[in-house]
């Protein structure tokens, strides 16, 4: 449930109504930033990545946490690449199969 998309806040459009413009892949849309203002001034939100849902910036994306998760995922990727490489070299070593001999 609940489609949410990462977007970058690029501009404050109406500080009184807590409205800012986010950019999602080159598409821009005005969103309400009330959920993520915290103690900041509106203008400090420019450059913040946020999770956008139905026109509201619902959460700040935590770059550090994103990096941590990616690091774990990267390890799975690297481990898999090693396995792939091992299997490729095994296949090469097994080059004297009947198929290859033909």
């Amino acid at each position: 449930m609940c489609l949410g998309i990462p977007g970058l806040i690029v501009e404050i459009s109406d500080a009184d109504r807590k409205l800012a413009v986010v950019d999602v892949s080159g598409v821009r849309r005005e969103v309400n930033v009330a959920p993520i203002i915290e103690d900041d001034a509106m203008e400090d939100l420019v450059g913040v990545w946020t999770l956008v849902h139905v026109g509201f910036a619902m959460s700040r994306i935590d770059e550090e946490e994103a990096a941590k998760t990616l690091e774990v995922l990267r390890m799975f990727g690297e481990a898999q690449e090693e396995i792939d490489a091992m299997m490729a070299s095994e296949a090469m070593l097994a080059g004297d199969t009947p198929e290859a001999a033909e």
Partner: peptide
């Protein structure tokens, strides 16, 4: 195009 992907992601 990236922008078309963007529109699709936003509107599902």
């Amino acid at each position: 195009r990236a922008e078309v992907k963007g529109v699709c992601e936003i509107l599902g």
